[in-house]
Write a protein that binds this DNA or RNA. Structure first.
Lengths: 115, 115
DNA sequence: ACACCATGTGAAGAATTCTTCAGGTTGTGT
DNA sequence: ACACAACCTGAAGAATTCTTCACATGGTGT
C-alpha cells in the first residue's frame, strides 16, 4: 500500500494548520470567492495569499477556475465544512477542560501538573 | 477578546499535524493507554513519545493520571474522535477529486493546471 | 502589438517544529 | 535508605514551513 492512513491524516491537518488557510476555507465554505475578494477579507500580502492558495490547491482542497478577468476559488470537498465545525466544538470543549483543571485542589498526580 | 477564533483553530490543527500524535489520539480514542502501551504500538523513541504527549497535554487534548506504577493517558474531549473520523471522510473525498482532475482533457483553465 | 490588472512563482532568510541526547524526577518494592 | 522502572525535560542541531521580494505570466481591452 501507499502512505499509511495516519500519516495522510497528519498531512491533512498540517495543511489546515495555518491561520490564513483557515480563513480562506471559511470564506470559501460560505461561497466561492475571487482572489481579490479574499484579499479584501484577509490581511495578508497578495503573493502570500497566492502561496497559501497554492498549498490548498496542491492538496486538492480547493479548485480554481477563471471567470471574466478574475480567478475564482471554491472548495472541492464539501465535508471540509464539517471539519471546521468540529474544530469549533472541540475548541469550546478544550476551554471547558482547561477550566476544570484549575479545580483540582488535592489530587497530586504529578505528570498532570501544570507548570 | 483574546485570540481570534481562526487562529485558535489553526493551532488546534497544527497540534494534530504530526503522525505520532495522530496515532496517539487514535489509540486513546479506543481506550485509555499507559505510556508503555503506546510505546509498543507506535514506532518512536521513548523520549520522543514523551515530547509528543507533552504537546497534547499542553493543549489539554489529553490528560494523564497515575495508576499503580504507570501513567495512563486519556482523551479529555470526546469529540476529538469525530474530528478524526471527519478527516478520514475528507481524505477519501480528496482522492476522488484528485481522480477527477485527470479527466479534464480539454479544459485549459490555467491556474488549475497541475505541474 | 501594447499596456494593464490580477495572479502566480522561485528563491532566500527568518521563524518554527522535530528528533535525539543526556540527565532528571517520581513512585515502588525491598 | 537504596535501587530500579517508568517517565519527563531542557537543550541543540536538523529539517520544515513562513514570509517577502523580485520578477514572471496570462488574460483583456484598445
Amino acid at each position: 500500500m501507499g502512505v499509511p492512513l495516519y500519516q495522510a491524516k497528519a498531512e491533512l491537518f498540517k495543511t489546515l494548520g495555518h491561520p490564513a488557510r483557515i480563513r480562506i476555507l471559511e470564506l470559501l465554505s460560505e461561497r466561492d470567492h475571487a482572489v481579490h475578494e479574499l484579499l479584501e477579507q484577509i490581511e495578508i500580502e497578495p503573493s502570500n495569499l497566492s502561496q497559501q492558495l497554492a498549498v490548498l490547491r496542491r492538496t486538492s482542497m480547493v479548485v480554481s477556475r477563471r471567470r471574466n478577468g478574475e480567478v475564482v476559488y471554491s472548495i472541492s470537498v464539501p465535508e471540509v465544512r464539517d471539519l471546521l465545525l468540529a474544530a469549533r466544538t472541540i475548541l469550546s470543549g478544550l476551554i471547558a477542560v482547561q477550566g476544570e483543571l484549575g479545580d483540582e485542589l488535592t489530587d497530586a498526580a504529578s505528570p498532570a501538573r501544570t507548570r
